[in-house]
Nucleic acid binder design. Structure first.
Length: 480
RNA sequence: CGGGGUGUAGCCCAGUUGGUAGGGUGCGACAUUUGGGAUGUCGAGGCCGCGAGUUCGAGUCUCGCCACUCCGACCA
């Protein structure tokens, strides 16, 4: 059939070429366009609307937990960046520098923020004096620049949008609690709103954020079995505070250094949504962040009464609180079906003369293409149930993929065999804690350490690599 | 940053031994259509990625650069 042919030619199949499939979706679903600067993407209205929905949900949660939004400058003087040694060393290779203002060379070059710990610290040094000033719970929504070598839309761009929380606390316990609390916010958001199952855990020492004492992360598995770091939360101790001279007088009038955290998620999450839920017909969006949650496609639109009935349905669904669109354009229904499937709209409702006569409409859920005939009277109730069902179904589907592609291994050979026979995936294996073994596992098997999960599973007594007593079970994988 | 691939209309692509650019799709108008990407007619749309060079003449040959893309090393 001609239609089928066209569909196939639109997007590369994910089984044929996952990477190509990914970029096809990004472009064909109107999420991004390329700009004239390498690695800098234009986020188009449909893609940006997803980000705005993500922002709304997270911003609300941050504020519920007492965080306040601020805005820091985008430039960091070189001397400021250099105050914390590990931090500079970590970021130096990928910062962009501003060296001129107009035609004048600047006395000190400015780096375009790759992250803002140093700026927050400089400011905190000025505003924190007493235990009464703590905690400081600041967050900012902004973009940062990291001069990446290879770039991909959403997954790795040289400029990306994110949110960075930076907090200061009086005690270690309180700061550690904050670090875990925010990791949990990210994990809940991924699982409940994005329908992406995540593994919570700690990064190994070699994989920690530059300057952090502990880095926690959530790891998600993409459809192709590769891992995506979806969010991070860091505990800094007082390392930065000492470097920046931030001190407060405690209740005994003793000077103390405050304990610091930072945490962030980025537009990369959109890449995560695409690669977790998408299929060969295009994007599949979780209802919570879909710019359009319901699209109404009229059939035989020009027959008498059809458009009116569709408009009435639109008003009702809108009144019920959904982001809904009626496509009354002149395109054929078939065109519209394909279009909104490409864009990942969670629910499509078809309403034509036959339905109107029968007092019903046809409801199709995107993630499984299931058709349901719904009585018009019951649309609101059915929609409410469907939205939950969609989120649960998408989550389940993603979880099954992850479980099918998670392999427990006790030797390096087992890892190699599992990956070769079952395909890319996450490997659960024991680790002694030595960086040498960590490197060797990657060298020999191709999978690197992703995280030491909070939820441990005992697979063996000894390290998968050296055979010494194991300290922890580690998730290993190929990372995006 | 190494290795490969690709840059021609918005998109996909053709373009012969070098002779001044074409198809499909999309776009605009009109008509007929509309339950899985409709059809016809007319029309608009090009610094052939950018810059040098060879040549009477370059989309085509040479060199350089840039971008995209894939595979590796680094990263949210």
């Amino acid at each position: 059939m001609k239609n089928d042919k066209k569909l196939v030619s639109e997007i590369t199949s994910m089984d044929v070429d996952f990477a190509k499939w990914y970029t096809d979706i990004c472009k064909k679903a109107d999420l991004v366009d390329y700009s004239s600067v390498k690695g800098c993407m234009i986020i188009r209205p449909y893609g940006y609307a997803i980000w705005e929905n993500i922002q709304k949900i997270l911003d609300t949660r941050f504020k519920e937990l007492g965080h306040e939004n601020v805005y820091m400058p985008m430039f960091i003087p070189e001397s400021l960046l250099q105050k914390e040694k590990d931090h500079v060393e970590g970021f130096a290779p990928e910062v962009a520098w501003v060296t001129h203002g107009g035609n004048e060379e600047l006395p000190e070059r400015l780096c375009v923020r790759p992250t803002s710990e140093t700026l927050f610290c400089e400011h905190y040094a000025n505003i924190i004096r007493s235990w009464r000033d703590l905690p400081k719970l600041y967050n900012q929504w902004c973009s940062v620049v990291r001069w990446e070598k290879t770039t991909r839309p959403f997954l790795r761009s040289r400029e990306f949008l994110w949110q960075e929380g930076h907090t200061m606390h009086a005690t270690v316990e309180e700061a550690r609690e904050e670090t875990v609390r925010m990791l949990n916010v990210y994990a809940d958001f991924h699982e409940n709103d994005l329908a992406i199952p995540v593994i919570k855990g700690a990064k190994t020492p070699s994989d920690k954020f530059a300057g952090a004492e502990d880095t926690y992360c959530i790891e998600a598995m993409m459809h192709d079995g590769k891992a995506l770091q979806a969010g991070t939360s860091h505990f800094f101790g007082d390392g930065f505070a000492r470097a920046f001279g931030i001190q407060f007088a405690d209740q005994n009038n003793q000077l103390q250094y405050p304990q610091q955290t930072s945490w962030g998620v980025t537009t990369r999450m959109i890449g995560g949504i695409i690669m977790t839920h998408g299929d060969d017909n295009g994007l599949v969006l979780p209802p919570a962040v879909a710019p359009i949650q319901v699209v109404i496609v009229p059939a035989a639109m020009h027959k008498e009464g059809v458009l009116e009935a569709n408009r009435a349905l639109l008003d009702r669904i809108k009144a019920a609180g959904y982001r809904v669109k009626l496509d009354d354009s002149e395109n054929s229904p078939g065109w519209k079906f394909a279009e909104y499937e490409m864009k990942g709209v969670p629910v499509r409702i078809e309403l034509g003369p036959r339905d109107i006569e029968a007092g019903q409409c046809v409801l199709v859920t995107r993630y499984n293409m299931e058709k349901t005939v719904v009585k018009l009277d019951e649309v609101e109730e059915v929609l409410a149930a469907k939205m939950t069902e969609i989120r649960d179904g998408m989550y389940q589907k993603a979880l099954e993929n992850r479980e099918r592609r998670t392999y427990d291994c006790t030797t390096l050979d087992e890892i190699k065999t599992a990956l070769a026979e079952k395909g890319d995936g996450l490997v659960r294996a024991m680790w002694c804690g030595d960086e040498e073994c960590e490197d060797r596992v990657k060298e020999v098997t191709g999978v690197g350490s992703r995280c030491i999960p909070f939820e441990q599973k005992h697979i063996a007594d000894t390290c998968v690599c050296c055979g010494k007593t194991a300290k922890a079970m580690v998730y290993w994988g190929i990372a995006y």
